[in-house]
């Protein structure tokens, strides 16, 4: 995880729920490269075609509400989204996105500072999001240590892998 993340911004409104991120009809798709073709099909139809790795998603309140479907952040990761920033998140989406290693930033008031196509700079440890066009910024409480560690490790899979490996090395025998 980089401490400073910059990228082009895609703006979304409030209450973008997981049905609008990945519709129920695509839930049997496992392949993230297939999933990413359908991301935001309802909320932002041009996104799947035009998004580039490193782009930042910037939404209003309650982003990712609704079901527990991990397909939503998975599709974003497959696109290579650099970060997801919102005024607030639904809790399962927040956990899922962090677990997949996507920098996920809750910064109240951030949505009002941005328009579609602006560039954003996110300072993870300092806790600041800046609009590089207008120069305006908003502060947020930096993520707690264990979540920064998780992002640092590249996500939950890698973190648990290290823990299990350390455990079996410690016990001197594979389980």
């Amino acid at each position: 995880m980089q401490d400073v993340i910059e990228g082009r911004v895609w703006t979304l409104g409030r209450d973008i729920d997981t049905d609008q991120i990945i519709s129920g009809k695509y839930l049997t798709i496992i392949d993230p490269d297939e999933l990413k073709k359908h991301v935001f099909e309802i909320a932002l139809p041009e996104f799947a075609r035009e998004a580039r790795p490193g782009d930042i998603i910037l939404a209003g309140e309650n982003f990712g509400s609704g079901s527990s479907r991990e397909h939503a952040p998975q599709a974003m990761r497959a696109i290579g989204v650099g970060a997801v920033v919102a005024d607030s998140f639904a809790r399962i989406f927040f956990r899922n996105a962090i677990n997949l290693g996507i920098p996920t930033i809750e910064a109240a008031g951030v949505r009002a500072l941005f328009e579609q196509g602006d560039r954003a700079r996110i300072e993870m440890r300092a806790g600041r999001v800046t609009n590089l066009r207008s120069g305006r910024s908003v502060e947020f409480p930096p993520l707690p240590h264990h979540l920064l560690d998780l992002l640092e490790a590249g996500g939950l899979v890698e973190k648990v892998r290290r823990e299990l490996a350390a455990r079996s090395a410690g016990s001197g025998a594979a389980p």
Partner: peptide, 26 residues
């Protein structure tokens, strides 16, 4: 549970909550 409505089981006097599949793996 890997479903957001796992909350239903809180009616038992439990704390029941939804998580995603990667977290479930952990």
């Amino acid at each position: 549970g890997t479903d957001s409505h796992t909350n239903m089981l809180g009616a038992m006097g439990a704390l029941a909550t939804g998580i995603g599949p990667t977290e479930m793996a952990a």
